[in-house]
Structures are given as structure tokens and as C-alpha cells.
Deep mutational scan, measured.
Amino acid sequence: MDVFMKGLSKAKEGVVAAAEKTKQGVAEAAGKTKEGVLYVGSKTKEGVVHGVATVAEKTKEQVTNVGGAVVTGVTAVAQKTVEGAGSIAAATGFVKKDQLGKNEEGAPQEGILEDMPVDPDNEAYEMPSEEGYQDYEPEA
């Protein structure tokens, strides 16, 4: 019985440690998101679009440190934060509304985080759909 109880105690310690790591990862992701939003706020009209992409990228980098179902929630929060940063930029006159959601080359930025393969159960990952990809044929 002692062996059984000791095993359960060790398992509990492992769960607590994993929860603490997840909590730490979420806190880091939130900190990076805040950094990115402050970065966007300090940019001029020309830099705002690039700044919004930076927020998304920093958040995406930190999301990889967070495991399990938390990833889905962090990704949703990050996307809403990026959308909010863009709205703030438009409201303050840093950028025109028609410039939001495009990178410096004018290509749409939507789907940055949505296409990231995420499995809350950590069982399997699927690649994003290939609808947006084109076949590449090298020139002879």
C-alpha cells in the first residue's frame, strides 16, 4: 500500500510541476504579447503594419512553449490582441483601416495563427491545408 501511495504522490508532483510550467509559459506569452502591443503603439504610420505582424510573430513563438489545451486559448487571445492593436492603430490615425491585415508588401496577414497546427491532446499534428499553395516548377 505504501508503494501505491508513494507512486500516487510522485504522479501528483509531476502534474503540479507540469501545471506550473504551463502557467509560466502562458505568463511569458502574455508578456511578449504586451511587449508587441507597446511596440505597435510606438510606431509611426509606416511601421504600424509591420508592428502588428511582430506582435503576432512574438506571440506565436511563445505559444510553442505552452502545451496542451492552453495553446488553443493563448492563440485565440493573441489573435484578438493583434486585431485590437490594429483597431487602436486605425482609431489613433497611425494607419488607414484599409491597410490593416496586410503586410508591407500588401499581402493579407489573416491566418497567421489560424494555420498553425495545434492539437490540445498532444496526440497528432496535421499540416495546414494546401489550398493556398501553388506547385513550383523550376525553369529549365
Rank of each mutant, 00 (worst) to 15 (best):
E130D: 15
M1G: 00
N103Q: 14
V40Q: 01
A85K: 04
K58Y: 07
E137P: 05
V55S: 02
T92K: 04
G73K: 03
A30C: 08
A90Q: 03
K102C: 06
P120Y: 10
K43A: 13
Q99I: 02
G25F: 11
V82R: 02
E126N: 03
V3F: 06
A30I: 09
F94D: 06
K23W: 11
Q62W: 03
G25Y: 14
E139C: 01
L113G: 05
L8T: 00
G101Y: 03
I112Y: 04
Q24D: 12
G84T: 01
P138M: 11
E104R: 15
K97T: 03
P117F: 08
T64L: 11
T81Q: 07
E110V: 05
V15T: 01
P120W: 08
A19Q: 01
K102H: 15
T33M: 13
V95L: 02
Q79I: 12
A53P: 02
K97P: 02
E110Q: 08
D119A: 03
V70F: 05
Y133R: 05
T33W: 13
D135H: 06
V66Y: 07
E130I: 02
Q79C: 12
E20K: 02
V55Y: 04
E123Y: 08
G47N: 07
T64D: 11
K32E: 00
E130A: 05
K32N: 01
E110C: 03
E139V: 13
K34R: 12
Q24Y: 15
G93N: 06
Y133M: 06
V70Q: 02
V66Q: 03
V63K: 01
I88F: 05
Q24E: 04
A30S: 14
D2T: 15
E110L: 14
V37L: 04
K12S: 12
G86E: 13
N103W: 10
D121Y: 14
M5R: 04
L38M: 13
V26K: 00
E126M: 06
V52S: 04
G132K: 07
P120D: 06
Q79H: 03
A56Q: 04
F4T: 00
T64C: 03
G14L: 08
E126T: 12
E13W: 12
G25W: 12
V82W: 12
N65C: 07
E46P: 14
A18G: 02
V16K: 09
G67A: 14
K45H: 03
K21S: 07
A124F: 11
T92L: 04
T33K: 01
M127F: 12
T44L: 11
P108Y: 05
A56H: 13
E137Q: 11
G106S: 07
D119F: 01
G36E: 11
K97H: 05
A17E: 09
E35L: 13
E61H: 10
K43T: 08
S87H: 13
M5C: 04
V74W: 06
D115H: 06
Y125W: 14
V48H: 01
T54I: 08
V26I: 11
V82I: 03
A91L: 10
A89W: 13
Q24C: 09
K23N: 01
E110Y: 07
K6D: 07
D2S: 03
S87M: 03
V71R: 13
S42H: 02
T22R: 01
A89V: 12
S87Q: 07
L8Q: 00
E123V: 13
A107Y: 14
V74Y: 15
A69C: 14
T75N: 05
M127R: 06
I112H: 04
F4C: 01
V16M: 15
A30D: 00
V118Y: 13
K21C: 02
A19W: 09
I88C: 13
K80F: 14
G106M: 07
E130H: 06
K10L: 14
Y39K: 05
V63S: 08
D119H: 06
K32Q: 07
N103S: 08
G14N: 07
N103I: 13
K6I: 01
A11W: 15
N65H: 04
N103Y: 06
L100F: 04
V40R: 02
A89L: 04
A27G: 03
T44A: 12
F94Q: 08
A78W: 08
T59L: 06
K45I: 02
A69T: 01
D98C: 05
K45D: 00
V52H: 01
Y39E: 02
P108L: 09
N103K: 04
A27Y: 14
A90L: 10
K43C: 08
M5Y: 01
I112R: 12
G25V: 09
K45G: 06
L8R: 00
Q24S: 10
E28P: 01
S129C: 11
G106W: 08
K96T: 12
A107E: 05
F94A: 06
E139T: 02
L38P: 00
G31I: 12
K43G: 01
K21H: 12
E57H: 04
D98R: 08
N65G: 11
E110H: 03
S9N: 10
V37Q: 00
E46R: 11
A124Y: 14
T92S: 15
I112G: 12
P138C: 11
T54F: 04
A29W: 13
K58E: 08
G25A: 06
P117I: 05
L113C: 03
Y136N: 02
L8K: 00
E57L: 11
M1T: 00
K43S: 05
V16H: 10
E123W: 11
G36H: 10
V40Y: 12
L113S: 14
G84C: 09
A17W: 11
V49A: 14
G84Y: 08
A27M: 03
K34G: 02
E139M: 11
Q99W: 07
N122E: 10
D119P: 14
V66E: 01
A89M: 07
V49C: 08
M127G: 03
Q109A: 01
G41F: 04
K60A: 15
N103A: 05
V37F: 12
E126G: 14
V74N: 01
P120N: 09
A91P: 07
A17G: 12
A27N: 12
M1P: 00
T22W: 11
G67R: 13
F94T: 07
E61F: 04
P108E: 05
K96Q: 06
E104C: 01
E110K: 11
E35M: 09
E61C: 01
V26E: 00
V74C: 06
Q24G: 09
M1R: 00
T22M: 15
A91R: 04
G41R: 09
I88S: 11
S129K: 06
A78S: 05
E61D: 01
V95T: 13
S129Y: 08
Y136W: 12
L100A: 04
G86P: 11
K6F: 09
V71H: 03
M1I: 00
V48T: 05
G93P: 04
V77F: 05
Y133Q: 14
N103T: 04
T92D: 07
A29I: 13
F4Y: 11
L100G: 15
V74G: 06
A140E: 02
A85W: 11
G14V: 12
G31D: 09
S87V: 04
V49D: 02
Q109Y: 09
A27L: 04
E61Y: 08
D121E: 02
G93Y: 13
D115V: 11
E105R: 09
K45E: 01
T44I: 13
M1H: 00
V52L: 14
V52G: 01
P128G: 10
K6T: 05
E105A: 13
G36W: 03
V16F: 12
L8N: 00
V26F: 06
K45T: 14
Y136R: 06
A56E: 02
V82L: 11
A56F: 05
T33A: 08
K34T: 05
A90W: 10
A124G: 09
E110F: 14
V55R: 01
G67P: 03
V16P: 00
E61P: 03
A19T: 06
A107F: 01
E139S: 14
K58P: 00
A90P: 01
D119R: 01
K21I: 12
L8Y: 04
I112E: 10
E28Q: 01
V63C: 05
L8E: 00
E61Q: 09
A76H: 14
A56I: 08
G47I: 05
D115C: 07
A124C: 14
V48D: 00
Q62H: 05
V55P: 01
S129N: 03
D115N: 08
E61R: 12
K21E: 00
A30V: 15
D135M: 06
A29E: 00
V37D: 00
